[in-house]
Design a protein around this nucleic acid. Structure first.
Lengths: 209, 209
DNA sequence: CATGAACTTGAGGTCATCCTCAAGTTATGT
DNA sequence: ACATAACTTGAGGATGACCTCAAGTTCATG
């Protein structure tokens, strides 16, 4: 990608910032014309910089994904593995609660750019480690698998959306119930088997379309 | 409501049946023209019978709500209170999994007609009883409240949507984790306090709009 | 400066869905 | 069988979002 002319770069920055604000407030389906207006730029300019919807979403939100990966980095090195596991989940949910766009992203897939792929691979690796540590320490139930992780996040998305306006911390209560069910000493036999990583990816694609 | 002319009644029935099919397959946002076409009737006729979107949704789906209330009736009289509680939740989730429209209804509010109000009141009463019984028997944790019930249902909606195509029973695994966390012997202290019934209603309104 | 390439602009074409209404059709009661 | 109220129809106006492009403007470079 060649470097942009100064005015073009400025407009691009304005657009990304505007997109972040509108996405956070109204979700990923906000009309593109709203974003252009918020940026103080014409709709044509938006299309010049971001020919497809996905490119703008990625420019606006890739940093949020990086953010989540940082959380995972930290969680994976915490002294108490259960604390690391629970802390990571809690902070993922906080990200969702703070930003409607991120909430929707948890249930849609981002476009596959090299940058996103790298983040995904790293996140994947870290989740494996976090889950593995917590199981080894005997605190996380042994039948919890990596594929169950997506469920934990998905399980709070509707709650967060529903209660954002009236009781923005309500999801914490639900999460506490669920975490209690994930402790080793709570375990009862499970029905079915966990999803494989590619099944999780496929499921996200389903939701997006 | 006066009785309809014979042809009008027939068209109404066709419309309701068509709406059920389209809603179940594609969700509540399916275009009205699709429903009219599926019913083999013009769009004008649809508007004659159902001047507002809500009226058609109600005509098509009130029976599903009645269905859920029947489940609650049965659950509330089951011999083992924990079984009743878990059985009811499981079957609510099955309803969601079988019908995309019902899934969406769990997170939107139905219009308030006398019929719906009656069902809601009865459902409310039965949930109180189911939860009360399970707590009294010492199987359900004592800090679970009626307002937490909505969370249990909401927690599966995204999972059900995401996995409907690829792993239609995956939600059962998640629900098993959560139920383990709801057993009395799993209880750890909870953050925050439960939602009041009016807060739940308000939250549903938020999601719908 | 001057010139061309890069960039911006917004009116307007396209599309999908919503909803209405004037004209035509059908059921129903006498 | 007839009159009339009830009903159906589908073309088309209204809306809102998408996306394009020809004309105008600004930047960067010699």
């Amino acid at each position: 990608m060649r470097t942009l002319r100064k005015d073009a770069q400025r407009n691009r920055d304005l657009l990304v910032a505007a997109a972040r604000r509108r996405y956070a407030a109204r979700g990923l389906d906000v009309p593109l014309e709203d974003i252009a207006k918020e940026a103080g730029v014409s709709i044509g300019t938006l299309y010049n910089r971001f020919p497809t919807r996905g490119e703008l979403i990625e420019a606006a939100l890739a940093c949020k994904v990086a953010n989540a990966v940082e959380l995972a980095e930290k969680a994976s090195t915490m002294a108490d593995p259960w604390e690391g596991f629970a802390w990571f989940i809690e902070h993922c949910c906080e990200l969702q609660a703070a930003d409607r766009a991120y909430n929707e992203l948890c249930a849609r897939a981002l476009p596959d750019t090299p940058e996103i792929d790298r983040l995904k691979a790293r996140g994947h690796e870290l989740v494996l480690r976090i889950v593995g540590n917590a199981k080894e320490s005997g605190q996380l139930r042994a039948d919890f698998e990596e594929g169950d992780f997506a469920f934990v996040v998905w399980s709070t998305t509707t709650i967060i959306n529903a209660t954002a306006a009236t009781a923005p911390d309500a999801w914490r209560r639900h999460l506490a119930f669920l975490l209690d069910g994930l402790r080793a000493d709570a375990a009862h036999p499970l029905p079915g088997k966990a999803l494989e990583p590619d099944e999780v990816a496929e499921a996200m694609r389903t939701l997006g379309g």
